[in-house]
Amino acid sequence: KKYAKSKYDFVARNNSELSVLKDDILEILDDRKQWWKVRNASGDSGFVPNNILDIVRP
């Protein structure tokens, strides 16, 4: 599994996007496009722009 940390707050604008808060740790589900599909600690998933994410190295 790959993880990323959010650098900023992001508010979803539709139901395919995921609202995240700065410093959230997110599991990366799909990173093939500019919007990555991620899952948060609550189990919710959706798309966020990859420019707000930093890859977390294990």
Score class of each variant (00 low, 15 high):
7 K>C: 09
36 W>R: 07
29 L>R: 04
30 D>L: 06
3 Y>A: 02
57 R>I: 09
43 G>C: 05
46 G>F: 03
4 A>P: 00
11 V>I: 10
55 I>H: 12
29 L>Q: 09
5 K>V: 06
2 K>M: 07
12 A>D: 02
1 K>L: 03
8 Y>P: 01
21 L>N: 06
12 A>E: 03
26 L>F: 04
13 R>C: 05
31 D>G: 11
50 N>V: 10
34 Q>R: 14
42 S>L: 14
58 P>V: 06
3 Y>W: 06
32 R>T: 12
20 V>E: 01
54 D>N: 05
14 N>H: 02
2 K>Q: 08
17 E>P: 02
24 D>Q: 08
13 R>S: 09
50 N>G: 11
5 K>C: 07
43 G>L: 05
11 V>H: 11
53 L>Y: 01
17 E>A: 06
44 D>F: 09
25 I>K: 11
23 D>H: 15
16 S>Y: 14
4 A>N: 03
30 D>R: 03
11 V>P: 09
37 K>E: 13
38 V>K: 00
54 D>W: 07
23 D>S: 10
34 Q>K: 11
33 K>F: 15
4 A>Q: 02
2 K>A: 04
10 F>I: 02
30 D>E: 12
8 Y>N: 14
31 D>C: 13
46 G>K: 02
18 L>T: 02
51 N>M: 09
11 V>A: 14
27 E>G: 02
44 D>Y: 09
20 V>P: 00
33 K>N: 07
31 D>E: 14
43 G>F: 04
4 A>M: 14
43 G>M: 07
44 D>V: 13
10 F>Q: 01
26 L>D: 00
19 S>I: 04
34 Q>G: 13
14 N>I: 08
18 L>C: 05
34 Q>D: 14
45 S>E: 11
57 R>F: 15
35 W>I: 15
12 A>Y: 01
28 I>W: 00
45 S>K: 15
14 N>T: 15
27 E>S: 04
3 Y>K: 04
57 R>K: 15
2 K>C: 05
53 L>Q: 01
18 L>F: 05
57 R>V: 12
34 Q>N: 05
3 Y>E: 05
57 R>Y: 08
28 I>A: 01
4 A>G: 13
23 D>G: 13
35 W>F: 10
1 K>E: 07
8 Y>V: 12
52 I>P: 01
51 N>E: 09
37 K>M: 11
49 P>M: 03
2 K>E: 07
46 G>I: 02
14 N>C: 05
56 V>K: 10
4 A>K: 03
5 K>F: 07
53 L>R: 00
17 E>R: 03
56 V>I: 14
15 N>V: 10
36 W>V: 13
20 V>Y: 01
10 F>C: 03
49 P>Y: 02
32 R>G: 14
39 R>F: 02
34 Q>V: 12
21 L>P: 07
14 N>Y: 15
21 L>T: 11
20 V>F: 03
53 L>K: 00
54 D>P: 01
53 L>W: 03
54 D>H: 11
52 I>V: 11
42 S>P: 04
31 D>P: 08
35 W>T: 13
57 R>D: 14
28 I>H: 01
36 W>F: 14
28 I>E: 02
56 V>W: 11
4 A>Y: 15
15 N>M: 11
37 K>R: 09
11 V>F: 08
15 N>S: 12
40 N>S: 11
46 G>E: 00
21 L>C: 14
8 Y>K: 15
30 D>H: 03
4 A>I: 15
57 R>W: 06
18 L>A: 01
51 N>H: 10
41 A>I: 11
6 S>W: 00
28 I>K: 01
57 R>T: 14
12 A>M: 05
46 G>L: 01
23 D>F: 13
22 K>M: 05
14 N>S: 14
14 N>R: 08
41 A>W: 08
3 Y>M: 08
20 V>C: 15
19 S>Q: 05
56 V>L: 12
11 V>E: 10
42 S>R: 08
9 D>L: 05
55 I>T: 09
15 N>C: 13
4 A>R: 04
8 Y>Q: 14
25 I>W: 12
27 E>H: 02
8 Y>S: 13
34 Q>L: 12
7 K>A: 08
15 N>D: 13
13 R>E: 05
44 D>R: 12
27 E>Y: 06
27 E>L: 08
29 L>F: 05
44 D>N: 15
55 I>P: 13
41 A>C: 11
37 K>T: 08
41 A>T: 14
10 F>D: 01
8 Y>F: 11
5 K>Y: 06
29 L>P: 01
39 R>Y: 03
3 Y>H: 10
52 I>M: 09
29 L>I: 08
39 R>N: 03
9 D>E: 09
25 I>A: 07
5 K>N: 05
44 D>H: 15
30 D>W: 05
45 S>Y: 15
34 Q>S: 14
49 P>S: 03
54 D>Y: 08
21 L>W: 10
44 D>W: 07
17 E>S: 08
41 A>Y: 10
8 Y>C: 15
12 A>I: 02
36 W>H: 04
47 F>S: 12
18 L>K: 01
10 F>M: 00
13 R>L: 06
29 L>W: 07
39 R>K: 15
1 K>R: 04
12 A>T: 04
17 E>F: 07
26 L>M: 09
32 R>W: 05
35 W>R: 13
46 G>D: 00
6 S>K: 00
44 D>E: 14
25 I>C: 08
31 D>K: 08
48 V>P: 00
32 R>M: 13
23 D>T: 09
37 K>N: 09
29 L>T: 06
16 S>Q: 12
39 R>T: 09
31 D>I: 05
19 S>F: 03
13 R>H: 11
43 G>K: 05
51 N>A: 10
37 K>H: 15
42 S>N: 04
18 L>E: 00
33 K>P: 10
19 S>Y: 03
18 L>Q: 02
50 N>F: 08
58 P>C: 13
56 V>Q: 14
48 V>L: 09
6 S>V: 11
15 N>W: 08
36 W>I: 10
5 K>R: 06
49 P>F: 02
53 L>M: 10
2 K>P: 02
45 S>N: 13
57 R>A: 12
3 Y>P: 02
8 Y>I: 15
41 A>K: 14
16 S>I: 13
23 D>R: 04
27 E>M: 06
52 I>E: 02
25 I>M: 14
53 L>F: 09
38 V>T: 03
6 S>A: 10
51 N>L: 08
41 A>D: 11
21 L>K: 15
15 N>F: 08
7 K>Y: 08
39 R>L: 09
10 F>T: 02
28 I>T: 02
17 E>T: 06
33 K>G: 12
1 K>N: 12
12 A>H: 03
47 F>Y: 03
21 L>Y: 14
19 S>M: 04
23 D>W: 07
26 L>E: 02
22 K>V: 07
5 K>E: 04
13 R>N: 10
21 L>H: 12
15 N>G: 13
55 I>E: 10
58 P>T: 15
23 D>Y: 08
50 N>T: 10
14 N>D: 05
24 D>Y: 00
18 L>Y: 01
52 I>D: 02
54 D>I: 10
16 S>A: 11
5 K>T: 06
53 L>E: 02
19 S>L: 03
15 N>L: 08
32 R>L: 08
3 Y>D: 02
39 R>I: 06
31 D>V: 10
39 R>M: 13
56 V>C: 15
51 N>Q: 13
47 F>P: 03
7 K>Q: 09
17 E>L: 04
58 P>Y: 15
37 K>S: 10
31 D>M: 11
1 K>I: 10
8 Y>T: 14
40 N>W: 00
6 S>R: 00
47 F>C: 02
40 N>E: 03
25 I>L: 13
6 S>T: 08
7 K>P: 00
44 D>P: 03
7 K>H: 06
40 N>P: 02
8 Y>R: 12
19 S>E: 03
54 D>G: 11
27 E>V: 07
37 K>Y: 11
11 V>N: 11
38 V>F: 00
25 I>Q: 11
20 V>G: 01
29 L>V: 13
44 D>L: 12
33 K>Y: 13
42 S>V: 02
40 N>I: 04
40 N>C: 06
57 R>G: 12
42 S>F: 11
7 K>V: 06
10 F>G: 01
